[in-house]
Amino acid sequence: MPSRVNTSAGDTLGTTAAPGAKAAEFTVRARSQRQIVFRRFRQHKAAMASLVVFALVVLFAFVGPLLWSTSASFMSNDIFTAPDASHPFGTDSNGIDLLSAVMKGTQSSLIIAVVVSVVSTAFGAIYGAVSGFYGGWTDTIMMRIADLFLTFPIIAIAIMLDNRFQAEASSLWLLIFVLTALFWPSAGRVIRAQVLSLKEKEFVEAARALGARDRRIIFRHLLPNTLGSIIVISTLTVAGTILTETALSFLGFGVQFPNTSLGLLVTNNQTAIEGGHPWLFYIPGIFIILIALTINFIGDGLRDAFDPQQTRVRA
C-alpha cells in the first residue's frame, strides 16, 4: 500500500538513526519487527505518558510500602482525619492510614489483574490457535465449549463460586481462578479468527512442505504472528479485570478481608461523600481509574504499533 511506504519514509525523517550507528548513506538498514513496533509505540505520546504513569503506580504499590512504614492494618487513634502531612491520604473510621491501605490495595489489585491477564490470554491464545488450525469438527467442538463459558455472565459465575467457597480462606486465588476461567474465551476467539486466515498463508504451506509438525507450526509460526493481538488483549484484560473486581466487591462478592483491593476500599467507603470524608471514596476510585485509563491508552498505543494499517491511513 502506497500510504504505508510514505509513512515509513516519514518515520526515517522524523527520527535520527539509533545512537552508535554509523551514518549509512547508501545502505538500507534492516529493522526488526520488534524495533519497528517499539519505535511506533514511542511515537504514541499518550501511550508513552500512560506507560510512565502506570510504572509510577506500580512503583507506588510495590516499593511504596517499603518507604511508608505505617502498616495498613494498624488502627491508629486518628479517626477520619482529612489528608494532612502525617496521613497524606487521610484515615478511615478505624484510624487506618489510607495511603498504606491504598498501596496494599493497589498491590493486590495489580497482582490479580496481571495474573488473570497473563494466564487467561496465554491459555485462550493456545486454545484459539489449536481450534483454528485444525478446523472442522475439532474447531466446532472447541468453539462451542468456549461459547459455553461465554454463555454465562462473568459476574454471575463469580458470585456463585464465591458464595460457595468464600468460607474457605484464600479467596484471592479463588477470585483469580474465576476471573481467568471467564476471560480466556474472548482471547481464544480473536486468536482463532486470526489463525484461520494465517494458516492459509504461504509460510505455513512452506513450513508444512519442510515437514514441520503441527505443534511446531502452531507454536513457531502461527502464534508468533498473532503476538500483536495477544499483547493488546492481555493489556486490555488488565483493565477489564480491575473493573470487574471492583464490581464484584461492590456486590459483596469480591476480595474478602483480610485480603484487600482497590475495589474493596471504594466499596467500603461508598457512602463517604455524604458522610463528610470524601477522600475515602475519591482516592481509591481515582487509583482504579488511573490504572484502567493508563492501561487503555497503553493498549491503544500497542494496537497502533502492531497494526500500522489503521493508524497510517489518510482520509
Binding site: 522524523g14 527520527t15 511515537q43 504514541h44 505520546k45 499518550a46 505518558a49
Partner: peptide
C-alpha cells in the same frame, strides 16, 4: 511526523 508529535501532546493535554 513532527506534526504528529504535537498532536500526541495535544491528546495528552
Amino acid at each position: 511526523m513532527a506534526k504528529d508529535r504535537n498532536r500526541g501532546r495535544g491528546r495528552l493535554t
